[in-house]
Design a protein around this nucleic acid. Structure first.
Lengths: 234, 234
DNA sequence: TTTGGAGTTATTGTCGACAATGTTCGTGTG
DNA sequence: CACACGAACATTGTCGACAATAACTCCAAA
């Protein structure tokens, strides 16, 4: 079962439901990146009026999954390497600060809960299939908890409400199942320690290094990929 | 004349125009914070249909100036002290990173342009009325330039597209004309020096301290205000 | 007096149709 | 043959009306 965004609210209106379906389809790549959205076509497909569909598109725009131009229409965002790196840099700044705030603002209960969550993940990791699991759910789960722990509504809105959908999209489209699972787990562990110690400065530094390490890992892969392509061309 | 958001695009549709008018009215406080938006009423006032008005409301929601609840409606956001501090903390993280990126990515031309801008401000500051000027336009002008200089679309979108409208709203509503003008000017000056030196690490630190100083100044004022109220009550 | 519920009113959500703008295709002219 | 212009088509923007939901009022019963 897929991990739900903790800030997500139950779908109430028809527009809510169409939004969720479209969001899923875009993130998973069922609708190709860069595709132009045809309002009449999609309205027919989901059996709603254009007004309802447009409402759904507006929400997609809010989480940066589509871009609209006046009198022209909406397109699914393109997944570029630059876009991915921009995203990671932004995350580094925001989650670093969220982590610092979490160290200051999380309740003791929240910290205990997060520690037990990590212990669960550790157990799951022992199992062979657990490694794969940790990459997907466990990682998001951890980051969500830290962000919510900041108790800063701005940070929560931007990270959980907007950027994380985009991040999931990139992860799907670029097939990112990095071999950083074990190392990432250790890093998570140390971050929690820093939060438990109420050491905001260290917590921020560790979170930034954690995300920066992911980014550099991606950059390395891209470089290798390009090199490989270059050799093939010869 | 008010400084325009550099990422703003010319209004094309009727919804664009209504959005800009509403945005201005909300930021300036012509529509009180916390007010519930009545779609029929505003549609009548701006002489557009409800569909057009709803489109405008959606954009206001994108820059966090209103909040919507399904089947209930939209309200202008409340300006709370916590909200203001959350905003400054988020800015500290984002603009700090933007500043680091600016040091790495700004072109030499952009840097020269920014330096000359500051020189202009310095001249204006000499004049008596210039001090007031620098608080409003000059400050925003500087921060915009740094953000754009990051060449990071995510940072630009979030800061210029979303947070800065909220910031202007808080500044208007709380009547923030702090006496930090001269000091802020010096801080800006040093930040530009760091960028010109291509010293990203220092640039980030200085920008964070610059914003943190504003935040602490606000916190101090709030504390004084509370103390004063407390004494009055006695 | 207060509380609970039924009926009324107002507001939001959704719909189909029309107007305005963009796009495409074909034709004519240089 | 290339280019420009114009007509036909498709898409988006806007509108007014209806359906669904929430808010309010008023009355009755505890």
């Amino acid at each position: 079962m897929p991990l739900q965004n903790p800030t997500r609210q139950a779908p109430i209106t028809a527009a809510d439901k169409v939004f969720e379906q479209l969001q899923h389809a875009i993130v998973e790549g069922d609708i190709a990146a860069g595709t132009k959205i045809s309002e009449p076509e999609l309205a027919k497909k989901y059996e709603v009026s254009r007004a309802t569909l447009r409402e759904a598109i507006n929400r997609l725009e809010k989480c940066h999954l589509v871009e609209r131009q006046a009198n022209i229409g909406a397109r699914i965002v393109e997944c570029s390497v630059e876009g991915l790196l921009d995203l990671y840099i932004t995350r580094e700044a925001l989650e670093g600060m969220a982590c610092r705030q979490a160290a200051a603002n999380m309740t003791d209960e929240e910290i205990v809960q997060m520690q037990s969550m990590l212990a669960e993940h550790a157990k799951a990791k022992e199992l062979q299939e657990g490694v794969a699991y940790y990459q997907e759910e466990g990682d998001l789960d951890f980051h969500y908890k830290v962000i919510l722990g900041s108790h800063n509504q701005q940070l929560i809105n931007i990270l959980c409400g907007q950027l994380y959908h985009l991040l999931r999209m990139y992860r799907c489209q670029f097939g990112m199942n990095s071999p950083r699972a074990t190392r990432a787990f250790d890093e998570h562990s140390r971050i929690i320690d820093a939060i438990a110690d109420r050491d905001g400065e260290l917590a921020e530094i560790l979170m930034r290094r954690h995300i920066a390490a992911s980014r550099k890992n991606i950059e390395k892969k891209i470089a290798q990929h390009k090199l490989q392509q270059h050799n093939e061309d010869k």
